[in-house]
């Protein structure tokens, strides 16, 4: 319980800090923020109204306090381009991004085990080298380029999938695969290395000397201990996955939060930009917190160490 409270406290501090960091960056706007927020076509009167609304005529610390106050009330301002609040603009796009991110994550976790196990069992053979090469490529190839090549090959040349947009489950296939590759690459390496390490542990020898079959040892004894690092790393890599959605959504015209962010930047719709980045930071910190707690629950040693 003490562990939970400590982690929770840490998460609160980090979110508070991240929010403050964002306040600083948004105030770095060269020139008058009111002009930027009001948009390029605003009249001087409109700019004055915006300045009053944003409290930009107040001293900086007053702005900061009211910024925090708005945040606690969930008020992140109005979208200039879309009308309505920035928060609801983001909320509308959230399901599409959630679907994409969770599909990619699920795909990566599900595929990483068979591939990692195959590589570990045939370590230093052609199978191992091809799987390792695949995981290296998955981790380092640029996803926006991979997405375009996938469109050319699978949609254009083979006609297997729709090239972009959304609506049916077929639309999800290409973006989810492209988004999952970097995470898959990381996890395959992890499962491979972890399995080889675990198989050297004394308790595996014990199990083997008890006469248990390879299958039982692998799935009952070794896998249980593999789950912990895989869950941890999958959780920690979620930030990467979130950044990846921005690019994948643009490439495949997927109507999620990432595309909203890029559209908002080109329209200089700062309230929406701010809302998206806040949401990303919040999600990321929460996920880290969940991973930490889960880790402490699965592996009691962590809780003791943290004291």
């Amino acid at each position: 319980m003490q562990y939970v409270i400590r982690r929770l406290g840490h998460a609160v501090v980090v979110i508070f800090g991240a929010v403050s960091l964002m306040f600083v960056i948004l105030r770095l706007v060269p020139g008058d923020p009111a002009i930027v927020y009001a948009g390029p076509s605003a009249t001087p009167e409109q700019i004055d109204v915006v300045r009053g609304e944003l409290g930009l005529d107040q001293p900086l610390y007053v702005q900061y306090v009211s910024f925090l106050g708005d945040l606690v009330r969930g008020d992140l301002g109005e979208s200039l381009r879309l009308g309505g609040s920035a928060v609801s603009a983001v909320a509308d796009r959230l399901p599409a991004t959630g679907l994409l991110a969770l599909s990619a994550m699920g795909l990566a976790v599900l595929l990483s085990f068979p591939l990692g196990i195959a590589a570990a069992r045939r370590a230093r053979t052609a199978v191992d080298y091809s799987i390792s090469t695949f995981s290296l490529l998955g981790q380092s190839l640029p996803n926006f380029w991979l997405g375009l090549v996938a469109i050319l090959v699978f949609s254009r040349a083979l006609g297997l999938t729709p090239s972009s947009g959304w609506g049916t489950w077929q639309h999800l296939i290409l973006p989810a695969i492209v988004l999952s590759l970097p995470l898959l690459g990381v996890l395959v390496r992890l499962v491979r290395a972890g399995l080889i390490e675990v198989m050297g542990e004394p308790y595996i020898l014990t199990a083997r000397s008890k006469g248990l079959t390879g299958r039982v040892i692998l799935y009952r004894h070794a896998m249980k201990n593999m789950l912990i690092p895989v869950i941890t790393v999958a959780g920690l890599q979620l930030g990467q996955l979130l950044s990846g959605t921005v690019i994948v959504e643009v490439v495949f015209a997927w109507p999620g939060v990432g595309r909203l962010l890029i559209d908002a930047i080109s329209n200089r719709d700062f309230a929406v930009v701010q809302a998206v980045v806040m949401l990303a930071a919040f999600t990321f910190v929460m996920l880290n917190l969940i991973v930490d707690l889960l880790y402490g629950y699965l592996d009691p040693r962590v809780r003791l160490e943290a004291k």
Binding site: H10, V13, G17, L21, Q240, S243, V246, V277, A280, A281
Partner: peptide
């Protein structure tokens, strides 16, 4: 401070 900065994914 480093933790806080990493709360926002670097690309974002």
């Amino acid at each position: 401070l480093a933790d806080i900065q990493l709360a926002v994914p670097p690309i974002l």
